[in-house]
Design a protein around this nucleic acid. Structure first.
Lengths: 252, 252
DNA sequence: TAGTTTTCTTGATATCAATCATCTAAATGG
DNA sequence: CCATTTAGATGATTGATATCAAGAAAACTA
């Protein structure tokens, strides 16, 4: 069973240079030239570590940095103070960028907490704005970030607005599969980074319903699932169940 | 009954200077200094007009410009070629910016068509990128655009993922109300810019259900609705029905 | 290790919204 | 102007998913 890179897998000595980071091609540096990267690196203030369940930032906090996930996993969510209800907005894995939600008015609009012990690269916004002025590549990355954010948005609207529960789950499993493939891991065997409760919340269904949908996918021999361990048995069937637009079936 | 600004309300002669545009504070120019605005204006290639039901751009089209809506209204949507099903992604009104969906890979990822005869300011992307290099204010606007896009995203996830149909409608009516208020129109009497079919699609429900929810809101004396004409009778009640986070009740 | 808590699964029932069907009113086109 | 089409409303029924309830397995904890 393939496991996600986590803190314990990293060597003890701090690796902060982007050029040695395995995620450099999916993170900010991916869009930068070598010269630009040199300047960029100097502005990452530090690699920070947060423990499981620890908060990275909360709704209303002043925006002071953007983050790139180096190892581990975090979730973002909204909480309604009135009724304690929460809505999970997304799960974020190594290579993902965080903190742009604060760009509208300099205040974060959601909470972010670690789902496991994690490491993040912190880039103070002041540095960031200066860097955008001098690094054309970084501006390009930001533009792409805008575009990707909108595409994800579209995808999610489709998922929540049109799809039935089974389709939503199938779609999400394929999305995770694609993520792992893009990071060099197996796209047919992987672990869910989140508990059922959070995944059900994110997918807009009751945990009981999620459980039933997993059972249904198993009965149809599409996947096997044991706790958080997922094995995709039939990618094509999974793709048929998910009617998402514009996503090619994953292959190992 | 207050009506939205539409093509016929505009004087016949072309008004292309941003400084004379009533939307300058909500559009790109809002974040620019006077000097910057001068440079910016020179790069808007033209004001284009599109007829009702005419397409502005389609999924897969090469990104060649971003747009600001000057008058009228448009909708964006995804269409599944397999089953002809569509998902409305959003409705866009004067002051809104369009076209950022193509920033990820230089191809538009959705279709945009006019819901009525409309006018848009077109800003070619080549110019745009150059402008971002020399205008700090434009970069700031872009950052805010990123932030706003994410906030809207969060709001929609909440709407589609957690809310019941009545809540969704109440939430959308409040959002429209806020929009009209921000543009200087009445926030208690306005027209829906879209037919029931499209609104139901956007809100993730059947048109029949939308109809019933309108009827329910009328029965509760929260609004009156005749065709597309909406009058909000009780903002507080509407706000109570909508459990959306962080949106204060509109007041006239 | 045993006890406790948490997470997950499964079954029975209730509820909300989709669908199907019909009808009315408004817009459109000759 | 009337004929036709389109948009919207309303009722009856079905179906999908939430909720309620209980139990099993795993993960903590003392």
């Amino acid at each position: 069973m393939v496991k996600l890179l986590n803190m314990n897998d990293l060597s003890k000595k701090q690796i902060s240079k982007c050029e040695h980071c395995s995620l450099r091609h999916v993170c900010f540096p991916g869009g930068l030239s070598d010269d630009e990267l040199g300047i960029f690196e100097g502005s990452i203030s530090k690699v920070i570590k947060i423990k499981k369940k620890q908060k990275l930032f909360g709704r209303g906090d002043k925006l002071h940095a953007v983050y790139a996930i180096k190892a581990g996993s975090v979730k973002s969510f909204l909480t309604n103070p009135e009724d304690e209800q929460t809505q999970v907005l997304g799960f974020h894995l190594p290579g993902d960028l965080l903190g742009f939600d604060g760009f509208a008015n300099q205040l974060h609009s959601c909470d972010v907490v670690a789902m496991e012990d994690s490491q993040l690269c912190e880039l103070p916004v002041d540095n960031f704005e200066q860097l955008c002025e001098i690094l054309p590549g970084l501006r390009k990355v930001m533009m792409q970030q805008v575009g990707n954010e909108i595409s994800r948005h579209h995808s999610l609207v489709l998922t929540l607005g049109k799809m039935q529960t089974e389709e939503r789950l199938a779609t999400y499993l394929l999305r995770l599969s694609c993520y792992y493939k893009s990071r060099g891991y197996s796209c047919t065997e992987f672990n869910l980074p989140m508990p059922r409760h959070d995944l059900a919340n994110f997918l807009g269904m009751a945990p009981e319903t999620l459980s039933r949908m997993f059972a249904r996918l198993e009965a149809a021999k599409v996947v096997t699932i044991l706790r958080r361990q997922v094995v995709i048995l039939d990618v094509q069937k999974l793709h048929d169940l998910s009617h998402e637009l514009c996503r090619q079936p994953a292959s190992d």
